[in-house]
Design a protein around this nucleic acid. Structure first.
Lengths: 360, 360
DNA sequence: GGAACGGGTTTGAACGTTCCAACAAATGCG
DNA sequence: CGCATTTGTTGGAACGTTCAAACCCGTTCC
């Protein structure tokens, strides 16, 4: 073993053997220091740790992956066309997943979908041994991925409900319905008379969820017969959304408010209010969804999904036994001037702990 | 696919030795089939390939990484707070980087910044052996990362100019200036009289770049004395942006147009036009930057950065020798009704190849 | 006082692949 | 025809780590 004679040139990274030699112990003891410190005698422990620090040794994760036969990494499929789909919620989710990863001793590997077959990208990625499993996002009814992963015994967790498999509990989602419900309560408390809903046509699970939250919110406030609602096909067609919001506001009358299923729809509502010569906040209340930069720029109150918490929950589920329950997180309301009736009440902070006000 | 049909118990994945045994050759020959097919006799090649297909063998990348002493993966630092900074350009860049990765035989690993020290996250990530280098984004003057990576001989490429190291050519960026310049030309051609600029205060490299593009565009059109410009501090404060746009439009007079340094500023310009009772397109032209969903929703013409191409270029630079030149990509203009003076000319497609019209 | 125990440490082997040197057979050359 | 060269293939070793079992030695137990 004359390999490490040249002490001066640290051209190559320090390995566990280098540390072992320096601390006058065997490789395995160094390994134990790192992985089972309780099994090592205190003096030895200290000596080895000193050498680790001195040599700046960091374990070679690739070698660990090979020997341990697990990657401690999970794959996340990015969607190249998803630009307009779920806003940028999924981008933020990926970021938060990455941020939370080290805390769970893991990593995130992104990969692109196979254009041919949905599951093929997953099969390939898994076969490389670079990941132990996957974090799914953008789950939808008819999604073949959960079924396939279950069949092949691949660990995974979904961000979004897994609609087709009621027995599968490995998912986190944000309870949009309760978010809207709280928004309605907030608008009632703020003093708006009637509270309408601007959403998407019935049929989409997410959209229906939010609409039901609106109905529940009205029921909470003792409104037995629902206020008006309008539905828009496209999130992008702002002109139609604006027109729908105009009709909605006309029917609701002055002093009313509109809860929207997205910030883009809220932008339509804001334009409708302007067109009708109504002041945003004092004359008409507007609440959006997702708390995007648009809502921030327009100073529109918006329902914010707790993405960081969702990412944490995802890791917890991934790394814990299958017995977990699904988790529905409660979104928070970022209150801005669009839901403030009077200038004086702008300073009044709601006491509901679920509602936070943005600090400027 | 009878890939792993129950010939034997396929509980464990097929390895290169399994293939070798089945094809009655040595491991090394199988390895050669995969890596240097030219060195293998045709009959053998065919036989081994058949077995590879039959057994559904995929090389274990982790083992390759260890033996080859390279990961064929690059790290990308995600920014948890960057939500509002560069729009969602960086999110899209990460996606496109991931999409292009397999074409270059590589992968992308995301990692979070170390809160303490900027380069520490890079040091750590590199030490694990999980990546060979990095793709930097969001470079700014004074950025310590390029210097450190150079000193430690770590391969990297930057998306965004590397300001402090003029001799470093390992970067791709989008030429915002020429994008604005083309936008000005487009507006001139569309028949707008005076063309203003709504941007950020002087001092930011990106903002100055775009403003200079505006000036260059005016010069192209033979305007020796520049039209009016306004600068806004914050991209988010839409009310101030709107007010600035109102002043700008008032000074420019009817039939003029405004080029904006961001889509959010363009939103301010759109509001200003509405407030002034001017029709967007016929009465006043507006062009935004980044072609976000806001621009799409408002039907605002916007300058789109060629992110997919930037990602491709980044990979090319990473995997080629250091001798490459830096690359400045030319953005495209997505033309919408906000820069169309007359209804008839809406159908007219500009002949400039750099300008594309969105197909609906 | 020998056997059983147990904490602490070491050694051999393995994870799945590629590098490297060696080798056998076929080919070229003088 | 003998020898050098090429072509195709092979086996040993190594990448850096952890698993599994063995080992050493001081205690405890009957």
């Amino acid at each position: 073993m004359a390999e490490g004679s040249r002490v001066t040139v640290p051209s190559t990274r320090a390995t566990i053997v280098d540390v072992a030699r320096a601390a006058r112990v065997s490789r395995q003891t160094v390994s134990n220091v790192l992985n089972r410190p309780d099994k090592v005698a205190p003096p030895t422990l200290e000596r080895v740790r000193a050498e680790i620090a001195r040599l700046g040794f960091t374990p070679h994760v690739t070698a660990q992956q090979l020997r341990r036969r697990k990657a401690a990494a999970f794959g996340f499929e990015v969607n190249p066309s998803g630009h307009a789909k779920m806003g940028h919620i999924l981008d933020e989710f990926l970021v938060q997943l990455t941020v939370a990863a080290p805390g769970h001793g893991s990593h995130v590997m992104t990969f692109a979908p196979d254009p041919e077959d949905v599951v093929e990208g997953y099969r390939q990625t898994l076969a490389t041994g670079l990941v132990d499993g996957f974090v799914l996002a953008d789950t939808r009814p008819g999604d073949p991925r959960p079924q396939w992963l279950l069949e092949h015994d691949v660990p995974f967790v979904a961000f979004g409900r897994v609609w087709d498999l009621p027995d599968l509990h490995q998912w986190v989602d944000v309870d949009g319905g309760i978010g809207v419900r709280h928004a309605v309560a907030h608008l009632v408390e703020a003093g708006y008379d009637r509270i309408g809903f601007l959403g998407w046509p019935a049929g989409s699970p997410v959209g229906d969820d939010r609409r039901n939250g609106w109905l529940a919110g009205l029921a909470d406030a003792g409104r037995t017969d629902p206020d008006e609602a309008e539905a828009e096909e496209s999130v992008q067609d702002l002109d139609q959304a604006t027109a729908a919001a105009e009709r909605l506001l006309a029917r609701l009358g002055p002093g009313s408010a509109v809860v929207c299923a997205s910030d883009m729809l809220a932008l339509g509502a804001v334009r409708a209010a302007r067109n009708a010569g109504l002041a945003l906040g004092p004359d008409v209340g507007v609440v959006g969804f997702d708390d995007t930069d648009v809502a921030e720029a327009l100073s529109v109150t918006s329902i914010r999904q707790p993405i960081a918490e969702a990412a944490q929950t995802a890791w917890r589920m991934l790394l814990s036994p299958r017995s977990t329950e699904p988790v529905l997180l409660v979104p928070e309301l970022t209150v801005r001037s669009s839901s403030t009736r009077t200038p004086s009440s702008a300073a009044t902070r709601p006491h509901d702990t679920l509602i936070t006000e943005e600090q400027q």
